[in-house]
Structure formats: structure tokens, C-alpha cells
Write a protein that binds this DNA or RNA. Structure first.
Length: 457
RNA sequence: GCCAGGAUGGCCGAACGGUAAGGCGCACGCCUGGAAAGCGUGUUCCCUUCCGGGAUUCUGGGUUCAAAUCCCAGUCCUGGCGCCA
């Protein structure tokens, strides 16, 4: 959430940010009007309340002195004030609630240095890594979904049977690969100073608001109780769409000490997304699924440190791809492609050579977003009430939060199955990963189980 | 799930219908050769250019001229009982 002060003092900057982000469902002028009207009523209410407090004090004194008649007069006056006060304050409360609700829908203002652009086509590629010394690839790289089924390490049909479309089983070496990647990521980031957190998987609505998923993006979340169309309460539960939600909300409504900062947490968790509105895109494979594993990095920092930490977070996130020897690129989001909550964001996209896409690199294949590193500045902190006290005797201020995926597991599996693929249909295990796979060097797959596998080859 | 007790500032803790004591911590000042002790001031949020004002005893309702205090509902914590990977 942006501050009221920003809204009041720099409305034009807010208007410009709305324009830069392509947000057109915020009526800024109406919000400013509501704000003005509320402030007038608040002043009026404060005056009335002041009067009532004085009369009340008087009543106490008169009663104590046994002056019953005079006390009764004062009580009558107080009753009258009470009525006027109620009318004014009820209206003021309504307006403030309205103001609060509207402000929750104003997006974070982009940083000044973020390239201005309308949509993803205007994102800026910052650099490309790992393309200088590429492996020898088979003439025809088999896409991960075909290879995964041939090796019987990915099973989409049974995923659909058991849970529905968009779910998959990882089996045998496929499952081991996911476990290994998770452990490898955690170990790497632990060495970078991260504290492990294993969060609750269901999170309440309040948490979803704290990180900015709600109230705008309820569509994409899995609701645990109640139907999707019903209004929700603060304590209704949802399956987390990213560990960013529980981990950032870990310190919701808290005041941290200056000495606590910076705080670096990492969390492995499954992530659940309805992917509403994505039907028809990415129906094959594990690039876009309803449940996927991810290791998330979350930082809480002093405001003046967030820009530097952002750069640090990018290198921490990309370090795992480097270690795995996977080629990737770093993309800076333009204003139009920044999310609701972000002031600045870089995507890390790994190269998956299996499917040629129009916007892929000249070597063929496609880019896959595996990590998204964002600086929210005080946007989430303000929503979630996360503060720190620079000096013990001073008032608390909002800290800055940042996060980065470190990284999405299935998409890395895609990149490994395609980039480390051999001509004979086996897949090399990247060297850095071998210790986490019991020393295994090659994935050879397994024989499928069951009647349905017989006779169709 | 049931029963009982509890929730007051950064921390501890009083007040139990009349408008939130006190202590600790922290900051600044006085004092001191310097420090300690001592003394003084300050130490939540909102509105206001200023002066000032309002709110705030877990949350939300209610009773009352007036609620930390009484009533109702909820959340969390502690203890006991029950259930249970």
C-alpha cells in the first residue's frame, strides 16, 4: 500500500505511476475527494469529542462533590453531544473504510530507473549467461513432456486421473530429481546466509492481503473452505500460491529491532495456482501446473539497503543456475509488466532447448521464467504492518521487503531434461547435483508399470 | 473438542465504573576531572502550517452521561481433561 502522505502530497506522481503500469481501474480523483471529505469530518468529530470529554470530566467532579443537580444538567448536555458525535463519526468511519479499501487497490509506484513500457514486449534484457560454451545437443531435442513419459519419470495421465488436469506425478528418478534440486537449492542458499523456514501450507486471507495477492487476485487462489464466489473473512484459509505469503507474513504486525536486520529467510514449499484464464496455453508438460515445488528467498531490510540487497538477491538466485551449468538470461521488467506490488523486478529465464518458440534465443528452444526477483520497498510492509525501530526511543518505521524464487523446481527439471539430454534418450545429471542423487551420473528411466503400457510401441 | 485462568506501552506491572500509578530499558540535558549514582525531560498512532486536538488497556459488538473495569461474541496464550498421527 502506498502512504496517505504520498497520495496527498504527490497525487500527480501517483497518477503517472498508474499510467506507467497501465492501471485503469483506479479512480484517483474520487479517492482524493473521499480523503478530503474524511479529513474534514475527522476534524469535526475530534472537536465534538473534545467537548464531550470536558463535560464528562466535569460530571465526574460534580458527582464527587455531591452536586447532583448540576451534574444532571451536564449529563443532559453530554447526551446531546453524543448524538451529534455519532452522526459525524459514523459517516467518517464509512469514508475511512472506503478510503482504505480503495487504497488497497492502488499499485506500488515503480522505481524511477525502471524502463517505461506498455507490456512484456518492452522488457529489457540485461545479460545472458552460460551460452559461450554450450554442450553438444542431439540434432532433435525431445521436449521434456515426451522424454519424461518415455523414461517413465513424469506421468501426466495419472496426475489428471488422481487430481485433474494440470497435475502430474514425478516418479522414480523424476521424483529423486525434484528432491535433489530442492536440497541442492537449500544447501546453496544456506551458505549464502539464509535461515531455513518450513511454513504452513494453508494461509489466511489476512496474509494474502499482506503480501498483495488480495483483494485483487482471488481468482488464482485455491480456497480451502467455502465456495469461491462467497465473500471471505480474514481468517478463511487458502493454499499458498508461493511461500512468499507465509514467510513475509511471518513478521506481520511486528516491530523488529534494528539489530535484527537484514533478515534472510528461505522456504521450500509446494505452490498452488488455479492459473485462471490460462486455459489453452501450456497444456503440455510441467511448465504451467497447478502444484509445483519452489524454494523461495525472502529478505527484510532497512529502507536504505533495499537497492543493494536487490542486486544481491539476483546473484543469489542465479547462482544455482550457474552451479548447474544451465544457460539463462536476466530480464528487467518494464513498468507495464511490473506486478501490482513491485517497484522493480528482474526475471531470470533459463534456456530450454526442447520446444522452439518465436521469442526464444537464436540457438532455438525457449526461455522459461524460473525466478522472479522483486523489490517491494515498503508496499508489503505497510499492508502487513511490518516495522522496525532504528533507535529504541524513536518511532517505528516500515522496513523494506524483497523476494526472489530460488527457484521454481519443475521448470529447472524441464531445462535439465532438455539441455542435459543425450542422443540415446538418457539425461546426464549435472555434476553439482550428483551428490544429491546418491552419486548418480545419468538418468536412464524405468520400465512402465501396468497393462496400459503393453503393446503400444 | 470440553473446563478453568489469562491478554494493559520496547519489557515488567498497578488500577477492577469517574477518565490509565509505578518500575525497568532507551535518548537527551543537568550534575561530575571522567564515570556511576542522583535529578529533569522525552520515549505509540492519527488529524493539524502553527497552537492544539483526537484515538489507543487482544479484536468486534452491547449497557452507561462515563468502560481497562460490567455483559455478549471471537482470536490467541497457559493449565487440566479428552482425542490423536
Amino acid at each position: 500500500m502506498i502512504s496517505r502522505q504520498t497520495l496527498r502530497e504527490e497525487p500527480e506522481r501517483v497518477r503517472d505511476a498508474l499510467d506507467a503500469k497501465g492501471v485503469d481501474d483506479v479512480e484517483l480523483d474520487e479517492i482524493l475527494e473521499i480523503y478530503d471529505e474524511w479529513r474534514d469530518l475527522k476534524a469535526e468529530g475530534d472537536d465534538l469529542r473534545h467537548e464531550r470529554n470536558e463535560v464528562s470530566r466535569e460530571i465526574g467532579e460534580l458527582k464527587r462533590d455531591g452536586k447532583e443537580e448540576e451534574a444532571q444538567e451536564a449529563i443532559d448536555r453530554s447526551s446531546e453531544l453524543k448524538e451529534r458525535l455519532e452522526a459525524v463519526e459514523d459517516r467518517a468511519d464509512e469514508l475511512e473504510a472506503e478510503l482504505e479499501e480503495r487504497m488497497m487497490r492502488i499499485p506500488m509506484l515503480p522505481d524511477d530507473d525502471v524502463p517505461r513500457g506498455a507490456d512484456e514486449s518492452e522488457n529489457v534484457e540485461r545479460r545472458r549467461e552460460g551460452f559461450d560454451d554450450l554442450r553438444d545437443l542431439p540434432d532433435e531435442v525431445t521436449p521434456h513432456y515426451d522424454l519424461g513419459e518415455e523414461l517413465d519419470i513424469l506421468d501426466f495421465e495419472r496426475g489428471a486421473k488422481v487430481s485433474g488436469g494440470g497435475y502430474y506425478f514425478a516418479k522414480g528418478e523424476g521424483a529423486r530429481l525434484e528432491h535433489a534440486l530442492i536440497q541442492f537449492f537449500l544447501e546453496t542458499h544456506r551458505e549464502q546466509g539464509y535461515t531455513d523456514v518450513f511454513p504452513p501450507i494453508p494461509v489466511n486471507s489476512k496474509s494474502m492481503e499482506g503480501t498483495g495477492q488480495f483483494p485483487k487476485f482471488t481468482e488464482d487462489a485455491y480456497r480451502l473452505e467455502g465456495s469461491h464466489d462467497e465473500p471471505y473473512d480474514d481468517d478463511d484459509l487458502w493454499l499458498l500460491p508461493t511461500a512468499e505469503v507465509p514467510v513475509t507474513n511471518l513478521h506481520r504486525d511486528e516491530i523488529l529491532l534494528d539489530d535484527d536486520l537484514p533478515l534472510k529467510y528461505q522456504a521450500y514449499s509446494p505452490n498452488f495456482r488455479q492459473e485462471a484464464g490460462e486455459h489453452g496455453t501450456e497444456t503440455r508438460g510441467i511448465v504451467r501446473v497447478h502444484q509445483f515445488n519452489k524454494v523461495e528467498l525472502v529478505n527484510f531490510v532497512r529502507p536504505e539497503e533495499s537497492e543493494e540487497r536487490f542486486e544481491g538477491l539476483v546473484s543469489e538466485a542465479e547462482s544455482v543456475l550457474q552451479a548447474l551449468g544451465l544457460p539463462y538470461r536476466i530480464l528487467e521488467m518494464c513498468t507495464g509488466d511490473l506486478g501490482f506490488t513491485q517497484a522493480k523486478k528482474y526475471d531470470i529465464e533459463v534456456w530450454a532447448p526442447g520446444d522452439d518458440m518465436a521469442d526464444g534465443p537464436e540457438q532455438g528452444g525457449r526461455w522459461l521464467e524460473v525466478s522472479s526477483v522483486s523489490n517491494f520497498r515498503e508496499f508489503q510492509a505497510r499492508r502487513a504492518g511490518i516495522q522496525y525501530r532504528p533507535e529504541q526511543h524513536e518511532s517505528a518505521e516500515y522496513l523494506h521487503t524483497l523476494n526472489g524464487s530460488g527457484v521454481a523446481v519443475p521448470r529447472v527439471v524441464v531445462a535439465i531434461l532438455e539441455y542435459y539430454q543425450n542422443a540415446d534418450g538418457t539425461v546426464d545429471v549435472p555434476e553439482a547435483l550428483q551428490p544429491y542423487m546418491g552419486g548418480q551420473e545419468v538418468i536412464e528411466g524405468q520400465e512402465p508399470v501396468g497393462e496400459s503400457a503393453v503393446g503400444d510401441e
